[in-house]
Write a protein that binds this DNA or RNA. Structure first.
Lengths: 219, 219, 219, 219
DNA sequence: TATGAATGAGCGTTCATTCAT
DNA sequence: AATGAATGAACGCTCATTCAT
């Protein structure tokens, strides 16, 4: 029973945070869905903020552990790393980390989206502090896989890619409504990923210079 | 005085929404900054939700009017439209619509971001209902400017582009903190746009097929 | 109606704080007795702490104003001041400041007692900051009215007198229960004061030295 | 181990009650300091209230036992008893009963203060019921040591003395802050007692009549 | 046209206590 | 003998909204 309540809370929190965002989800919503006592959140997690961080940990801890392993393993072989390999690596790690529950990837991406957008919650600093090193390690590898991109240019491209990844995935249930198709959900995530990677590769590999005259003109 | 109060409220709302997001901004914050009575928001706008929509209108109404004009004007000349032209058109319209105040583009993108994530309850349906036709018209032109892209494929690429555009811009204040540079704000927005367009063009123009074997393998 | 709610809250707060202490009285107790909405406390006073301070102000502001006037007036005549005069002055000021409601003195003394004993509430520092000067002025006069008392000795005697004054008055309703008499309340306060003043005068005027050998022996 | 846990709880309770008062100290504070399980308080003592009473017993039981012995022993010699003897007797008993730990006297006096103000719900009735007889016996001796004091007059003087004793001692940590001296704690308690006794003797011995005309005038 | 006052609902948190093991 | 888990009640506070003036 002990472990059960804490897990029920975490599950309900993941569901509701992903559905409505962090700030629009109250502890009463969570404990109501989990069918546990309101005070048990504080008992098991200490505070609302700690629960939010536990949700983040639930995804990011295994993800980063897995990613570290893959990176380390790949570096044994010191041949040149291609960007496609790294994207492949990341996608696999994300899929594995979020495979434990249905809709896992979507929930994860929505959580990342809210973490990105919601300024008040201290989630972003928490994530940077606890998992920043792993992501930086990955980013350094990614950067060196695409030469001829300045530090600045690369930094922003990463965020453009993040935006392209997180936002469509996190709202894909609404998008699929627009498409007016009904289909099995996990498949649709694969479809998005299927369409995402070539987009990212092309965007990351784009020359920074070619269109800049035009852009400068219009600014 | 009446018009003045309503305007002061709108200005304060735009400022605070852009600074702290929608959910983190209370009517008390807004009326406090505007130095008007708390009840005047409901008096002038009817409800909090209506105020949020008024803020959306503030940006989207001139934007769509401007965009419609540009589209119509361009279609007089029935030569083939290139994607760069359309991006240029959109960026100009966005910059013009948000030029009236500092941080205008950022607020606008944050607004779109929240609408995307559906947190601000009914903002997305409101926008679709009121401004959807203009965007659809634009999208149709964009689609026909890039042949050899299936309906589905194009649909998703649009959202990937939206994600790449909206999310980095809407959180750019946090990103620039990470970059640890000090900079004049509006300039930094231009920098982002400067870096955004080649990324979008490359992504949109990417072949859909090339990397699909790899991706299928990893899913 | 505006002034009414704030006053009803203050009245209920005074009653309940005096009856059960500050910490054992909740805002819901107060608003329940006052028959007003819970949120109106925050509306009119800002916070619970501010309400507590308003209660203190209610008694101490007129008391200190009155006391200042009496002190100033007395100092016009530069004859020697006797301790009895000062006690008389203080008692009159206290009675006047608390005359506005039945049991006024008792409530006032209980409030002072709780302020003395309850460590958590920040009431004591608040009182010292806002009214300390007046009391210091009074104390300086009292000190110079009883020569041959060291600074330290006098300081402690003041607190002994305060204890003798506040604590019996604040629990006098319980004491009178023990005495098993029933009588009109204000009269009983007069009885206490009647018995208090000679006690205080004797205590304040006691020689500091006479019994010290004995005391030292027993410590 | 059983006895150990109960004792650790009592020790922690005494420490924290003395430091922050009864109401400001939660069971979690106590069990946290004692490093025992939260539920063990209820297991060993039954309830929070029973723990408070156990703390009272811890001081009052040996005090009253000691006091009874001293009274009985003194009565063997049937010479007249002087008030100083009785104060000496009481002070010795209090010091002895509270000598087992630092700050003992202060805690004891705070306990009495809260019991006096009736805030700690049923502490006063509990003390009266369990230890009232001893105190009454002492009071009767004290009364007969000071002739010419009416029953009423004596009754009130006892409470004035109690107030003068309890209140300054129970808040002496705050008072000494005001004095802005740094000092070894137990010593400061002795200083207070040093200054208390002559004050009490003088107050108790004061004639009841001398100043009454003045007082009556001002009421 | 505008506002001070008031309201009901809901928030995260803390509490002493209970109970199965 | 002892405890981890859980609970219901209550806490101070903030919220968007309403309403009489």
């Amino acid at each position: 029973m002990s472990q059960d309540t804490a897990k029920r809370i975490l599950d309900a929190a993941i569901t509701l945070f992903a559905e409505h965002g962090f700030q629009e989800t109250s502890l009463r919503d969570i404990t109501g869905l989990a069918d546990v006592n309101l005070a048990s959140v504080n008992y098991h997690y200490g505070s609302r903020k700690a629960l939010v961080q536990a949700v983040a940990d639930h995804y990011l801890a295994p993800l980063c552990r897995d990613l570290e392993n893959r990176i380390t393993e790949r570096l044994i072989d010191d041949t040149k790393v291609h960007p496609e390999e790294l994207f492949e690596m990341l996608v696999k790690a994300v899929l594995k980390a979020s495979s434990s529950r249905p809709q896992g990837v979507v929930l994860f991406m929505r959580l990342m989206g809210f973490a990105y957008l919601e300024t008040q919650s201290d989630l972003r600093p928490f994530i940077i502090k606890r998992y920043g090193e792993t992501f930086k390690r990955f980013m350094r590898m990614l950067h060196s896989s695409v030469p001829n991109l300045s530090e600045d240019e690369f930094f922003w491209r990463v965020h453009l890619m993040l935006g392209a990844t997180i936002l469509p995935l996190s709202s894909h249930h609404a998008l699929t409504e627009i498409e007016s198709e009904s289909y099995e959900t996990q498949a649709s995530v694969e479809v998005i990923l299927h369409r995402l990677v070539p987009f990212l590769v092309a965007g990351l590999s784009a020359s920074a210079d070619t269109v800049s005259p035009k852009v400068e003109k219009l600014l």
